[in-house]
Simulated scan of single mutants.
Amino acid sequence: MVNTVAYLYPWDVLGDPRAVDRVAALGVSRVALGASYHAVRAATPLHPRHRIVHATHGALYLPVPGRRWAGQAIRPRSAAAWTGRDDSFLAARDVVRARGLPVDAWVVLTHTDDAAGFAPRNAFGDTYGYGVCPAFREVRDYARTLVEEVVRAGAPDGLIVEACGPMGVGHQSEHEKTAGADWDALDERLLSICFCSACTELMTDPDRARSAVAAAVGTGRFVPDEVAADVLGVRSAVTAALRDEVVFAARGADRLGFFADPDPWAVGPSAHVLEKADLYVAAAWDASTSRVESLRDAVAGRVGAYVTILPPTVPDADQLTRDWQALIDAGADELHVYHAGLASAARLDAAARALRNLKEGNP
């Protein structure tokens, strides 16, 4: 049976004496617990005290000591406004561990609204205020310090890092109203190329690149090869630099995992990070095996399949069993199940039965 990881926020655990029992009943091997996360409005359908938690901004779920952030341009904010305390990760971690489950700290890096001055900027000059661009030295300093603090103060059993690279245009933001533009995958790739001041300083010919990218949007064509090589070279370099900062900062963790994608143009939660970690997690929410197979071919470490039990997934244990078995057959060493706090009782029950089927060899 492969390792299984259930994802949770600290507020799912705190104030609910039955939360960890529900998670343990899934049959999972460990828990990935949010330690640094972006703004979100989250349902808590089984919590005894509330039904909605609104995290109004990106936050660190650990104390934010001023001395550790002195002189830095970007500093994380506290989550006390909606958790009631500044150490909610620690409190939830201890509850989960008391049930015998190891806890990985789930850390989101460049998907944050903490520093609009360092936001990505597309070829039209539009900024994406839900992210920060790792081409800025200040962003990499922020990421390094953030991970160091999570490892030092959070003392997790492992680290799962999301968004270790540039953010792109695809994002569910406040009342997102972009679907009707009918941008295809090529348009989204073009609109995800960053032209912030830090990126353009690294480009060979930023004016040509900006003009070519802007002109290509909506045409069904990509930019000339030399322009593509220029902008992709910058993206690859800054993603690798950010990854190296994280690897250095996480040196005290027992295991380090990245949400990863073998596509060098990848942006958002899963970046093109394929080296220097113990685990690489492929997005498999659509139950397709292709990303797992591609990642398995590209890395030497363990491969995880990131699966969802939320819509549009149907809470059907037999279908989940077949889908997850296919991902395992494709090369997944772990199943990462999103999300044990957001799911209804019916969805948790279907997931538990599917994992039990896999353990018993009944696909």
Score class of each variant (00 low, 15 high):
residue 2 V to K: 00
residue 5 V to K: 10
residue 5 V to T: 14
residue 8 L to W: 06
residue 8 L to Y: 05
residue 9 Y to S: 00
residue 9 Y to W: 08
residue 14 L to I: 15
residue 15 G to R: 15
residue 17 P to N: 08
residue 20 V to R: 04
residue 24 A to M: 00
residue 26 L to I: 10
residue 26 L to A: 00
residue 28 V to K: 04
residue 28 V to N: 04
residue 40 V to F: 12
residue 40 V to N: 14
residue 42 A to V: 14
residue 42 A to H: 10
residue 45 P to V: 06
residue 45 P to F: 13
residue 46 L to H: 11
residue 46 L to F: 08
residue 48 P to D: 09
residue 49 R to H: 14
residue 57 H to L: 11
residue 57 H to Q: 15
residue 58 G to I: 06
residue 61 Y to G: 01
residue 61 Y to D: 13
residue 61 Y to N: 05
residue 64 V to D: 10
residue 65 P to I: 03
residue 68 R to Q: 03
residue 69 W to S: 01
residue 70 A to C: 02
residue 71 G to T: 02
residue 76 P to F: 11
residue 77 R to Y: 05
residue 77 R to T: 15
residue 81 A to K: 08
residue 82 W to V: 04
residue 84 G to S: 05
residue 87 D to G: 03
residue 88 S to D: 15
residue 90 L to K: 01
residue 94 D to R: 08
residue 99 R to V: 04
residue 103 V to W: 04
residue 105 A to H: 11
residue 119 A to R: 06
residue 121 R to P: 00
residue 126 D to H: 00
residue 128 Y to F: 13
residue 130 Y to R: 04
residue 134 P to L: 06
residue 134 P to K: 03
residue 138 E to L: 01
residue 138 E to D: 00
residue 147 V to I: 06
residue 150 V to Y: 03
residue 150 V to K: 01
residue 152 R to P: 13
residue 161 V to E: 06
residue 167 M to P: 00
residue 170 G to A: 03
residue 178 T to Q: 11
residue 178 T to N: 13
residue 181 A to V: 02
residue 184 D to A: 14
residue 187 D to C: 14
residue 191 L to N: 14
residue 193 I to E: 14
residue 196 C to I: 09
residue 199 C to W: 15
residue 203 M to S: 09
residue 211 S to M: 07
residue 212 A to E: 15
residue 215 A to C: 06
residue 216 A to V: 07
residue 219 T to L: 03
residue 219 T to Y: 02
residue 222 F to I: 02
residue 224 P to V: 01
residue 225 D to G: 00
residue 225 D to H: 00
residue 231 V to E: 14
residue 232 L to Q: 12
residue 233 G to H: 13
residue 234 V to T: 11
residue 236 S to W: 02
residue 241 A to W: 08
residue 249 A to K: 04
residue 250 A to I: 03
residue 251 R to S: 10
residue 254 D to M: 01
residue 262 P to T: 03
residue 263 D to E: 05
residue 265 W to Y: 10
residue 268 G to Q: 09
residue 270 S to Y: 13
residue 273 V to E: 11
residue 273 V to D: 12
residue 282 A to P: 15
residue 282 A to H: 06
residue 283 A to Q: 07
residue 286 D to R: 15
residue 288 S to R: 15
residue 288 S to C: 05
residue 288 S to W: 07
residue 297 D to T: 15
residue 298 A to Y: 09
residue 301 G to S: 05
residue 305 A to S: 03
residue 305 A to K: 08
residue 306 Y to G: 01
residue 309 I to S: 00
residue 310 L to Y: 10
residue 311 P to Q: 11
residue 312 P to M: 10
residue 312 P to N: 07
residue 317 A to R: 07
residue 322 R to T: 12
residue 325 Q to A: 03
residue 328 I to C: 10
residue 329 D to M: 09
residue 347 R to Y: 08
residue 351 A to V: 12
residue 356 R to F: 12
residue 363 P to G: 04
